[in-house]
Nucleic acid binder design. Structure first.
Lengths: 236, 236
DNA sequence: TAACTTTGGTTAGAGGCTATAACCAACGTA
DNA sequence: TACGTTGGTTATAGCCTCTAACCAAAGTTA
């Protein structure tokens, strides 16, 4: 069914797929994942209905690609922030990473919800997503691993240390982003998981609008959460 | 249109509305908010299609009631945990509250997602929801207000203190659950907002299944998060 | 008791969505 | 130049929400 990757036909195919995805992203931005309608996209592209099924096997397949692209985009933004703050102390870098993460989510709140929430009952997350999530969190792991963590969360660290021992891809991930933390992979992983939860705690609620009308800036709350985490990990 | 609250006719109406909601909750449990279909509910009740519109003006109206009921249910569970742990030290009580909150969410993960995520593009949250959220968080506020908070998060506290000064219903809420914290409402509110974010950070990711296959128990992560917060607020 | 109003139910149908089937034209290639 | 692949079409089935028009039964009132 699919054309070859190269050649004039394949190029055309890739371009149309891109247009479809852009139109779908607009729908996501305006009304969330539920607003994505192949029919509507076709109308917007000046093409009629079932033509899109030549490019995407189903609506879920399209959403899956949007999710994968979104993860890649977010990972890019975080990686750029890591690069831009390369020389600074670890605490400042952690704040820069969190701000970049939140900046992306605030710019595309519905896309963030698309990444986190399950878009449809029939949707099944492909295995690539977990790799994408690791790519996003890697720089955070690197920054946190520079500290000398205090005695907090011993139970969590123990569980994660065991996980790192039994799952080679996890150990490889830690090694890739924090090669010096091999000795205490449990603490490094605990930091990664915790920063993930803190980011999502603030940004997930902000994205759905649960902080609307409350007298505080979500960025301030996130800063406080990241600061507390940096304290716990002894970041300078 | 609606029958009087009392009388045989009103009772019948209330009972049918209950049956509809129960069927809808089953659909939510099986496939999330997107799986709620008035048509399907009608079939299950042995009644045909548009009859349900005599009971609920629209699908969104039904979802709204499910959300309100869900908040009430969750608030109940938290309040019961508060009562059950009344005598114990504040830190233990905070853990009990968090465990009760998470217990409800784990028992009905799709309902939790219904409460947090926006169910449909056309949905508009009614003003009652913010009151319901306050009822859920009240006991947490009470437990946190017993500590002597450290110097953390000054910017956040400042913003929230101003909010409490300018919004009387917020000050009343603080006073209702933590009458001794009036002097430092900013710190108390910061605790409430922070515990909300931490709960959602862990439980929101857990509910969508993002922790599946990772080598740690979400309960352990939540315990660590609550412990860290209790430390920051100097809870005994 | 008889007349009337409200209420819960019905069927018909418009309009939107996903997805499949059958068919056709154009394009790139051999 | 002949041909297979590919991108497009229309028709159609089967969901869904929601409105309109109509009917019967139940409660209410004169």
């Amino acid at each position: 069914m699919p054309s070859s990757d190269q050649g004039p036909r394949g190029r055309y195919r890739a371009q149309v797929r891109g247009e479809i995805k852009r139109a779908a992203l607009q729908q996501v931005a305006s009304g969330g994942a539920a607003a994505v309608a192949l029919n509507g996209i076709a109308k917007r592209l000046g093409v009629s209905g079932p033509a899109l099924y030549k490019y995407f096997g189903s609506r879920d397949e399209l959403l899956t690609e949007l999710i994968i692209d979104g993860y890649a985009d977010l990972a890019d933004v975080v990686a750029q922030a890591a690069e831009a703050s390369a020389g600074r102390p670890a605490r400042a870098r952690l704040h820069a990473l969190a701000a970049a993460f939140r900046g992306w989510a605030v710019a595309h709140p519905q896309s963030y919800l698309l990444l986190t929430g399950p878009p449809s009952p029939t949707y099944q997350a492909p295995p690539e997503t977990v790799d994408r999530a690791r790519a996003v969190l890697g720089p955070f792991l690197a920054a946190l691993a520079e500290g000398r963590p205090g005695p907090g969360a011993p139970a969590l660290r123990k569980q994660l240390a065991r996980w790192s021992d039994t799952a080679p891809e996890v150990a490889a991930w830690v090694d890739a982003f924090a090669p010096d933390a091999d000795a205490d992979a449990g603490a490094a992983l605990a930091g990664a998981v915790t920063v993930w939860a803190r980011l999502h705690g603030v940004i997930g609620l902000e994205a759905v609008g649960h902080f609307a009308g409350m007298g505080f800036a979500p960025a301030t709350l996130l800063d406080a959460e990241i600061d507390a985490l940096a304290d716990a990990y002894g970041l300078p």
